[in-house]
Design a protein around this nucleic acid. Structure first.
Lengths: 337, 337
DNA sequence: CTGTTAGCGCTTTCAC
DNA sequence: GTGAAAGCGCTAACAG
């Protein structure tokens, strides 16, 4: 069987009215008679009419597609976020195309270029570990394509963003450790180019001060999030002048790599060195020694909020210039007893 | 700045030729002068011309979009597969829309309906744990939308499919255990509705026969892949008449749940009971006691092959009817020493 | 409230 | 080899 196209023309013919009336009725135009609308809808149903997106898009000069670029689909944080995005976006009849930067700047740029070429109506982004400049995203603006960032947001630029209250959560994490009597707390942070790293550090710093814990410079490490670098930095911590009692990790993946480094040295994770981290991924449930505590970031909800904000911007009147908006998602410290 | 549209009309004007010539030149039509083509391409470049997909699609009555429905993006097997699909598909200027069934038949059906409504050019599917009928996919055929299945394929229906050589791999797994002198081997299989479950069972059965290992009926369990059911079935195995020395699990997730059940009973996974499984996911690298061996299924490659096959079908002449094709991907047993 | 009409950007006969 | 013109399915002035 072939793709049989039922068009508004068919509906118009069947009802003996004009296509424009059908078109308007279908769009629930206020000035169309209730009776007429009813009949149009009924006939559309009967004929199995399905609007042709391409025609609408051509006419309206939109694509009803939004682009998403993020580091890795494999990370549960992001695959949950994308689910949130998709649920919101598809409820509004938009499509989502996803592109993975794999934490490489070059792949991120390629994705952005392709978004411009395919004329997406908007972009949702979480930047790569290598991204330090906002530059390439400005290009999207030049084409009038709005961008909303989530979680990993470029620094020092006013942009639309959805983020967790990282600093507060980081504070809570250290507080949790302090209350357990743990004093020597190191931080294995993400790249300095990410604002989310700064915020973790700030929360760490403030809490360490507040609870009178000593801040040694060698306790503060950053990793580029790769396995190699993370292992190396963790080994540095273990072999450093004083071995930390606890390590506060950028996220669960960093924590898991760090634990591996621990085992390499014959140490038992969460016994010899306590781990706490960010993300609270389902996979940690499979670990024999999960981090003692971690911050649930509500990835799905972040995705939802980012999508809602983007749609709001896309659907705002063309002339209205909205100031950059920031949405903060509350996180929660989960203690794995 | 606004979205400024450069159209073929602009190119035609700039060159003082007609739009049809420009259109043909851009498509590398054989009957257009080489000189003309060159000038057209050059001008297109200079003007930053980007073809408008909507117009082309409207004209050609295609959407350049393919739909993918699979159980979970969160499972690494599927997120890797989708990456393979995307790489192939986007290289050919198609878009991918992904829908997660979450192993629910109802969500799978919704996805299929939405694919029909949005007129995708083709569908790639891996069926849900609940799917027993091919029925709903037939609907896609009715609209002339080709479907390619991968990994989780409906049973007893001739369809386009990409699958691993599961039975062989299952055989190898049991062989591996037999060679270690392990005799009491149980299988914690997936739902009987999935052909991939049958194949695992067949490989298990043949190997058990071949190596003279006893097949107890209580050693053969199936789970619906949910955590609850898997825990329950594993506890049944532990509390059964004879406790198995090894359990062959449907996939790494089932293995990880089963190991949890193990620990609940005070048993140490891979010491008291040995686990082997399918998938060889990266996350198993984070486990303290990963499965002793597992079958690498090359998810990325499966995705690639499924996408290539689908594109081949889509791009074949409209009148040609291709017989259902089957592509078998070689798997490999990985022993975690 | 409804019909007429002119396109959106592109492809594709049919001419020459 | 190239151009003119029709039209894909839909929307939105403009006109009643």
């Amino acid at each position: 069987m072939q793709k049989i196209q039922v068009t508004i023309k068919d509906i118009a013919q069947a009802l003996g009215i004009s296509v424009s009336t059908v078109s308007r009725a279908l769009q629930n135009h206020p000035r169309i008679g209730l009776r007429t609308k009813e009949r149009v809808f009924e006939t559309a149903q009967r004929l199995h009419y399905v609007p042709n997106p391409a025609a609408i898009l051509l006419k309206k000069n939109r694509t009803a597609t939004i682009g998403v670029v993020l580091p890795h689909l494999q990370e549960e944080f992001f695959s949950q976020a994308i689910t949130g995005i998709e649920d919101v976006i598809s409820a509004q009849q938009y499509n989502v195309v996803v592109s993975q930067s794999r934490d490489k700047l070059e792949r991120e740029n390629r994705a952005i270029k392709s978004f411009i070429n395919s004329r997406v109506d908007g972009v949702i982004a979480s930047i790569s570990a290598e991204t330090t400049q906002y530059y390439q995203f400005r290009e999207l603006e030049n084409y009038g394509i709005p961008v909303v960032f989530f979680d990993r947001v470029p620094k020092d630029v006013p942009v639309n963003r959805v983020r967790g209250n990282i600093a507060d959560a980081a504070f809570e994490v250290i507080q949790f450790l302090a209350q357990k009597g743990i004093k020597k707390v190191a931080i294995l942070n993400g790249p300095a180019s990410l604002e989310v790293s700064d915020e973790r550090l700030m929360g760490y710093w403030n809490a360490m001060k507040q609870f009178d814990l000593p801040i040694h410079q060698p306790f503060i490490k950053t990793t580029d999030l790769s396995k190699e670098d993370t292992l190396k930095k963790m080994l540095d911590l273990i072999d450093g002048p004083t071995m930390p009692e606890a390590v506060f990790c950028f996220n669960d993946y960093v924590a898991m790599y760090a634990m591996q480094a621990c085992r390499q040295k014959g140490l038992v994770p969460n016994k010899d060195i306590v781990f706490v981290s960010f993300a609270n991924l389902p996979i940690t449930a499979y670990l024999d020694n999960p981090p003692l505590a971690s911050v649930e970031q509500f990835a799905y909800q972040m995705g939802e909020e980012a999508a809602k904000l983007l749609l709001k911007i896309i659907q705002s009147p063309a002339d209205s210039v909205l100031p950059p908006e920031e949405i903060v998602i509350n996180t929660r410290l989960i203690v794995h007893s």
